[in-house]
Design a protein around this nucleic acid. Structure first.
Lengths: 353, 353
DNA sequence: TTGTACGCGTTATCAT
DNA sequence: ATGATAACGCGTACAA
C-alpha cells in the first residue's frame, strides 16, 4: 500500500512538474479563478503523469473548514436502524436533500459504550435520529464542537433544530376512533422504552425511567383517551416483536382480553394480528388493531391496516434541508409534521356479549 | 453559528491559557507521552473554561493521515440499498468489525451522475457493495488515491480485495435439485441486470449488456443445468417486483407455463409465490419455486422457501476485517464464501399430465 | 494571468 | 516532563 519509493503525489509535486506555482495548480483543480488554457493543460498533464488523484480531501477539508460529511447518529445497531421501514423512508428523504447534493452520510451507531467517539468524528453537522437516552450527553459534546444539530422527534433541546411529529395527538385521534367504535378495554403495544429494549408489561416505574421520547409521546396520546390503558413494550419495531407482544396480551381468558390494541408501529400491528389469527381471534370482529406509520406492508398481512400515516420521507427531506440551511449560515426553522388517520379494515366495533 | 467575537477554541488557545506549549497540551488529549499530573489538570481546566471540545478531527486527520471513516459505495439509492435484507445482514457484519471498533461508515450511493465525487470524499478505505456497472471507473479514481479497496461479489479487479460468494455454483446446485425432481421447463427471475433496472424478458442482447455481476453469475449457474432457461429480470429485489415477474411468467396458457422458477432472491421468490397463489397455481404441486439468500421471511409468505442460504453477516465481517488488515499495513487475503441449499416446502416434482 | 506568503489545527521528532 | 520546530496538503488574500 504505502510505497516509500513512490510517495503519493501532491499538488505541490504536480505544480513543480508542470513548472507552475502550487496556487496556480490549485486553481486548476478548484476551478476558482482564471487559468490560461495552456497552463491548465500542462498542469493536467503533469497530474496524469504522476497519477495525481486530485486535491487530498482531508487537507482540503481542513483548509475550507468543511468535510462534506453529515453524521447520522442513531442509537440502534447499524442493521437494526435500517430494518425499520420508517427509517428507510427517512433515509430516502435525507438522500434527496443531502446525498444528491454531494454530501456523504456518515452512520454513527451510538451507545454509551460504543467505539465511536462523537467528539472525534470529522463532520459538518449531525442529525440525531431516534436518540433520546443520553441524548443530552451526545448533544453536549457536539455542541461544543459548534456543529449544527438537527434532531428528529426528540425532546426539545436548546440550540438543536427540531423536526417533529404529532406523536401524542395522532395517537389520541386514533384512540378516539376506537372509543367512538365502542371500545373500552384497550391495550398498548409500544416501541422499546429504553436502550435495554426490555420486552415487558408497562408499569408506572418502567414508564418513569423510559428514555424513548417517541414511545412515551404515543403512550401519552393513548392515555388521553384511555387513561387506564395498560400494555407491553416490545423489543423493537418488528413483526416478530409484535407477535410476541400480541401473544402476551391475547393469550388470556376472553373476559380479560382487550377488545382493541393500539400498536406503535405498523410492523408491531402486523405481529399482533398474526398472534390473534393464531389464537383464533377474528380481526376486526373480535379484536381491533391500530397501527402507526402507514408503511406499505407489502403482503406482510392481508389486512388493510387502520393506522396513522406519517410523512416519513418529508421528515427526512426537512432534516436534510435544515442541515443545508445551517451550513449556509442561515437559521433553520423547526418543522412539525402531522400524521393522518387512515381507515383500514382492522378497526370495528367491539364484539357484543 | 459562527461567532466572530468568540472564535472556536483551539489547542493553541488552550495551551496558552494553561501556560504550556501546544505540544504538551496535545499530549494531554492524545494520551501519548508522559505529562505531569499538575500540568494535565491545568490544561484540562483551561479546556473546560474555554469550552474546548478536544482536538479538531479534521486537523487531526490531516496530521495523522487517518480519518477513521470507511466508505461504503453502493449503486443504489440510499434507501433501496438497505431495503434488501441481505445488505442489512452484511451491514450487521460490517458494524461488528468496523463500527464497533470506532470506525464510521460513510454511505456513498454512487451513480454515474450522482452528486458524490469519490475523489473528494475523506476516507481511509472503501468497500464496494454490489458495484459492478462502472465499477472499473470508480475503482480507478479510488486506487489513484491509494485507498485500500474491498469489493463484495464483484468481477476480479487488480489490487482490490475480493469477498466472494459461490453465486454460480450455488445456483447450479439448486437447479440440479429441480432437474432431479423432474423439472424440464424452468424460468428465471433475476435481480436487476443493469443500472436502469429494466423489468423485461431476458434476451441474449440484454444479457450481453448486463453489468450486474451477481445476477449474471447466478444466471450462469442456472444455465449450466437448464441451458435454454429463459425468464425475466426484475426491477429490484422486492416482493412486489417478484410478484410482477411472477405474473409475467405464469399468466400464460398452462402448456407454456414453467413448472419451476429459479428466483435470484428470497424476496423475489415470495413475490412469485404470491403471483402463483393469485392465479390459482398451487405451490409446490403445480409450481416449484427456488429462492436465494436464506433470509428470514418473517411471515411474508407462509411457505418455508427452498433456497440457497448465504452467510451474509459473515461476508460483512470478512469485508470489515479485510479493511482493518489493509489499514494495519498487512495484505488482506481474499475470502470466498459458499452457500448452502436449504430444502423447504416450495420444491416438489412437476405435475404429471 | 500567475506567483508569494501565510495559515487551517494538529502531532511527531528531537532537544532540553 | 516540556518546548521549539516542522511538517501534513491545500486554498486564498494580495501583490506582481
Amino acid at each position: 500500500m504505502s510505497d516509500p519509493a513512490n510517495p503519493r503525489p501532491t499538488l505541490a509535486g504536480v505544480a513543480a512538474r508542470a513548472g507552475v506555482s502550487a496556487s496556480t495548480a490549485s486553481l486548476v483543480f478548484s476551478g476558482a479563478g482564471p487559468v490560461a488554457e495552456a497552463t491548465r493543460t500542462r498542469v493536467l498533464e503533469a497530474a496524469a503523469a504522476l497519477g495525481y488523484a486530485g486535491p487530498d480531501p482531508t487537507a482540503r477539508s481542513l483548509r475550507r473548514g468543511r468535510t462534506g460529511v453529515i453524521g447520522v447518529v442513531t442509537e440502534d445497531r447499524l442493521g437494526d436502524a435500517f430494518r425499520d421501514p420508517i427509517n428507510l423512508a427517512l433515509l430516502d428523504g435525507l438522500g434527496e436533500e443531502l446525498a444528491d447534493e454531494g454530501f456523504g452520510l456518515l452512520v454513527l451507531p451510538w451507545a454509551p459504550d460504543s467505539g465511536v467517539d462523537l467528539s472525534a468524528v470529522p463532520m459538518d453537522a449531525a442529525i440525531l435520529l431516534g436518540c433520546s437516552a443520553d441524548l443530552a450527553h451526545s448533544v453536549e459534546v457536539l455542541q461544543r464542537r459548534r456543529l449544527p444539530l438537527v434532531a428528529i422527534e426528540a425532546p426539545p433541546l436548546a440550540g438543536v433544530v427540531a423536526i417533529d411529529l404529532d406523536n401524542a395527538d395522532a395517537t389520541r385521534r386514533g384512540a378516539e376512533l376506537l372509543r367512538e367504535l365502542g371500545h373500552r378495554r384497550v391495550a398498548l403495544v409500544t416501541l422499546p422504552l429504553d436502550l435495554g429494549r426490555t420486552r415487558a408489561p408497562l408499569t408506572p416505574a418502567r414508564e418513569q425511567e423510559a428514555t424513548a421520547f417517541t414511545a412515551m409521546e404515543r403512550i401519552r396520546g393513548a392515555r388521553a383517551v384511555f387513561p387506564d390503558a395498560g400494555g407491553v413494550s416490545a423489543g423493537g419495531s418488528t413483526v416478530a416483536e409484535g407477535y410476541l407482544a400480541g401473544r402476551a396480551l391475547l393469550d388470556v381468558p376472553p373476559a380479560d382480553r382487550p377488545t382493541a390494541i393500539v400498536a406503535q408501529s405498523d410492523l408491531l400491528a402486523a405481529g399482533v394480528i398474526r398472534a390473534a389469527e393464531e389464537l383464533g381471534i377474528a380481526v376486526p370482529a373480535e379484536l381491533s388493531v391500530l397501527g402507526f406509520d402507514g408503511v406499505r406492508l407489502d403482503g406482510i398481512t392481508p389486512y388493510a391496516l387502520t393506522t396513522l400515516v406519517q410523512p416519513a420521507v418529508e421528515k427526512g427531506r426537512a432534516a436534510g434541508r435544515a442541515v443545508r440551511e445551517a451550513l449556509a449560515g442561515r437559521t433553520p426553522v423547526p418543522v412539525s409534521f402531522a400524521s393522518e388517520l387512515r381507515a383500514g379494515t382492522t378497526a370495528a366495533p367491539p364484539p357484543t356479549f
